[in-house]
């Protein structure tokens, strides 16, 4: 129970920081809406509706990347991460709390973005929403760990997309498949499998990312 209390305290702190500085979520929202406008001009008239559905996933992945790049910026200033490492009993709680706050930002951005996408490019089906929800879990789990890695390196923001994109290709495949295929269930299954496998690996290995 006290583990969850730690996770709660850490996630609450991230939301508080965002509420105060308001720099991540508005940026993510603006980015995802701008990318929709770009998509309109990328897709020539008469292009299949499916093409736009695929591009939705490009928007989601890059919007998430935008949020993840800033995930540990507050900790890096003043090297707060050292303080958290000393204070937190189980270091995976730091990952858990951060992943929850990333998940919240991503979900909030999508609550706005998906209806707008529907408005611009045609109806968003329920299976797409389910796929986005499942993919968000995987993106938050893997992305938080990789953001922690990138924060420890000299290259930082430059490194994160390089680490992140090859790892989320299965999520993109699952997401696009669930959106456009005739039988989405196996693709939704793939997304759930990804969440389970990578969630566990990230949860188990985060302690090594922040401590020697």
């Amino acid at each position: 129970m006290s583990y969850l209390a730690d996770v709660g305290a850490l996630a609450r702190k991230d939301l508080l920081l965002e509420l105060r500085s308001r720099d991540t979520l508005p940026a993510m929202l603006l980015f995802v809406l701008s990318s929709f406008v770009v998509f309109h001009f990328v897709l020539p008239t008469g292009t299949d509706r499916l093409a736009a559905q695929g591009l939705l996933w490009v928007a989601i992945v890059f919007t998430a990347l935008l949020g993840l790049a800033r995930a540990f910026s507050a900790e890096r200033e003043q090297s707060v991460l050292d303080g958290l490492v000393l204070a937190t009993r189980d270091l995976s709680a730091i990952w858990f709390g951060k992943a929850l706050s990333i998940l919240a930002f991503l979900a909030l951005a999508e609550v706005v973005a998906l209806p707008v996408f529907g408005l611009f490019f045609g109806r968003v089906e329920l299976r797409t929403v389910a796929a986005v929800a499942l993919a968000d879990l995987g993106i938050a789990a893997v992305g938080t760990l990789l953001a922690g890695m990138a924060a420890a390196s000299r290259a930082r923001e430059l490194l994160l997309p390089l680490l992140f994109l090859p790892l989320v290709i299965p999520l993109v495949i699952g997401g696009v498949g669930a959106t456009v295929a005739d039988h989405p269930s196996s693709y939704l299954g793939l997304l759930a499998l990804y969440d389970a496998v990578f969630g566990l690996v990230a949860w188990g290995s985060f302690a090594y990312v922040v401590a020697e």
């Binding site: 760990l145 299965p170 495949i173 793939l190 990804y194 990578f198 290995s205 090594y208 990312v209």
Partner: peptide, 21 residues
């Protein structure tokens, strides 16, 4: 540590990607 964690992600990625592709 960082490199080791990343390398471990690789062996998880191989089967999952294989399935996905």
């Amino acid at each position: 540590n960082l490199c080791a964690v990343y390398a471990l992600f690789g062996v998880a990625l191989i089967p999952v990607s294989f399935l996905a592709i």
